[in-house]
């Protein structure tokens, strides 16, 4: 596979504070990566360093195997960091024209990209008249002008209303469907969970995990059950090798058991039925990214 970005032991110190501490990961073509971490964990600083706006303290990174200088490489990258930054007195189209000049590409794709983000009818409005959601969509259009090898989005839905968030997600999904590599930084777990195949978790500048989303936790998931003979159910679960950590959820009253091996729900139901337990509720679940994330960050607290 083609390596797009390789980060090696990257560190950034602001005075005494170490914002990013020895982070290393690699981005391969065709995947969708999420950088996950609470606010202030160093996501934006990391992106700022690879995008040439924040000076690194130590470590190094390479775009496209280091064949080109950083600013040449960045012409093949589309990126938005935090706020959409444009010239307020120019129209959407004029702003995009300028970006084309900077990236050294023709302006043939401006209308196409504005169409993609649903701003074609506002192309001649001044940027200053745009709502935050529209600004953010314009930023995405601008990042796509050069049909980038990788699209980097930093908190793309930050500060948007639900409709705006939905629109942005739809756009991201559309872009992902075209096979573009995406790096998405966010503190919103469900956002990353919905679109990303790989995840990098950062907390207080330290990288906790880097890999596939579904390999993040080696567990086989858990089951939620309910039966009339609840006491017997718990008794059986406790004595069976398939389960561990049996708890009763206070809110729902459901019995929850962590699976120790991959068991089909069917097989599980049959086993309990043979023991005389008839379930009125059975759900087999994988832990959500949110739970895994909390677990990971707590482990390392």
């Amino acid at each position: 596979m083609n390596t797009i970005l390789k980060i090696n032991q990257l560190t950034k110190k602001f005075g005494l504070l170490t914002a990013v501490n020895n982070i290393s990961f690699t981005i391969e073509k065709g995947n969708i990566y999420g950088i996950l971490g609470p606010n202030g964990s160093g996501k934006s600083t990391t992106l700022g360093m690879v995008l040439n706006v924040v000076n690194k303290t130590s470590g190094d990174f390479q775009w496209f195997n280091g064949e080109q200088s950083i600013h040449q490489a960045l012409k093949k990258v589309g990126a938005i960091i935090e706020h959409p930054n444009f010239y307020p007195y120019m129209t959407a189209k004029q702003n995009l024209n300028l970006v084309c000049k900077i990236k050294n590409v023709t302006n043939a794709k401006i209308e196409e990209k504005l169409e993609l983000v649903g701003l074609l009818d506002r192309k001649d409005s001044n940027f200053s008249s745009f709502s935050l959601g529209m600004k953010q969509r314009l930023a995405i259009a601008s990042a796509l002008l050069n049909d980038p090898e990788i699209l980097i989005l930093d908190e793309p839905t930050n500060g948007l209303d639900p409709q705006g968030i939905h629109q942005i997600r739809e756009i991201i999904r559309k872009i992902a469907a075209t096979g573009t590599t995406i790096l998405l930084a966010s503190h919103l777990l469900d956002e990353v969970e919905k679109v990303c195949s790989h995840v990098i978790i950062i907390r207080k500048g330290v990288m906790l995990y880097s890999g596939k989303v579904d390999e993040m936790n080696a567990s086989h998931g858990y089951v939620e059950m309910q039966a009339q003979k609840n006491a017997l159910l718990i008794e059986v679960l406790k004595n069976h090798e398939w389960f561990e950590n049996i708890t009763i959820d206070k809110e729902t009253g459901l019995t929850k058991a962590i699976l120790t091996q991959p068991i089909e729900a069917e097989k599980l139901n049959q086993m309990l039925f043979e023991k005389g337990i008839i379930l009125s509720h059975l759900v087999k679940r994988k832990e959500s990214l949110e739970q895994q994330f909390l677990e990971l960050t707590q482990q390392n607290a």
């Binding site: 040439n52 960045l74 706020h83 900077i102």
Partner: peptide, 16 residues
């Protein structure tokens, strides 16, 4: 306007 940041991200070098 923070456009300096965006200019650099878009691939303009600081020298340029």
């Amino acid at each position: 306007n923070r456009t300096l940041k965006q200019n650099l991200i878009d691939g303009l070098s600081k020298k340029e």
